[in-house]
Structures are given as C-alpha cells and as structure tokens.
C-alpha cells in the first residue's frame, strides 16, 4: 500500500510517501511496524493521540482494519480555514 505523511509527520520521517509491504491488520499494527523500523518513525509516531489518519482519502481511526486499503495517510490535526 501507499503510505503518505503530511506536515511535521512528513518532516520527521523525511519523505512524503512510500510503498509499504505489510500484513498489518489495523492502522495501529502498521504504526507498530513502522516504529520498529527506525528512530525517525518512532519520533513521528511517539504520541498517536496527536495524529490523525485517513484511509483511501477518508478520515478514519487507529483501530480501523486495513483490509483492501490502498492508501494510508498520517498527519497532525488539520489547520485549515
């Protein structure tokens, strides 16, 4: 699946998006896999209560299943308007 990062999440991880091969069942499982990879992921996901997630461009939550999902995006709370 394609995993995207925005705002300070993107800056901490250092890339805007990447292809990730995973069998993670839920968003939280995917986060745990990423955090285990490298410190920069651990830094970005240190406090997931400060993050939001979208699955295939729809806001979702960290308990959501990933079956069939093609695009996951992580970002801080939005500051539009």
């Amino acid at each position: 699946m394609n995993v995207m990062y925005f705002a300070w999440v993107r800056e901490r991880i250092g890339i805007p998006q990447e292809a990730v091969e995973t069998d993670a069942a839920t968003v939280s499982d995917l986060v745990a896999e990423l955090v285990a990879r490298e410190d920069r992921y651990a830094a970005a996901f240190a406090d997931i209560s400060a993050l939001r997630v979208a699955l295939d461009q729809e806001l979702s939550d960290f308990d959501a299943p990933l079956a069939g999902v093609r695009e996951v995006a992580f970002f801080p709370p939005m500051t539009g308007g």
């Binding site: 925005f6 705002a7 300070w8 979208a54 806001l59 970002f75 801080p76 709370p77 939005m78 500051t79 539009g80 308007g81």
Partner: peptide
C-alpha cells in the same frame, strides 16, 4: 478549519513553526 486536510506553517525571521 478542523476537517479539511490543510496544515499551516508560519515562517518568521526567527524560524518556521507548524
């Protein structure tokens, strides 16, 4: 303000902050 996917970053003479 809270549900459209935009993020603002302020760039000042002292640096940049989200």
């Amino acid at each position: 303000k809270s549900r459209a996917p935009f993020w603002k970053k302020e760039v000042t003479g002292a640096g940049a902050d989200w």
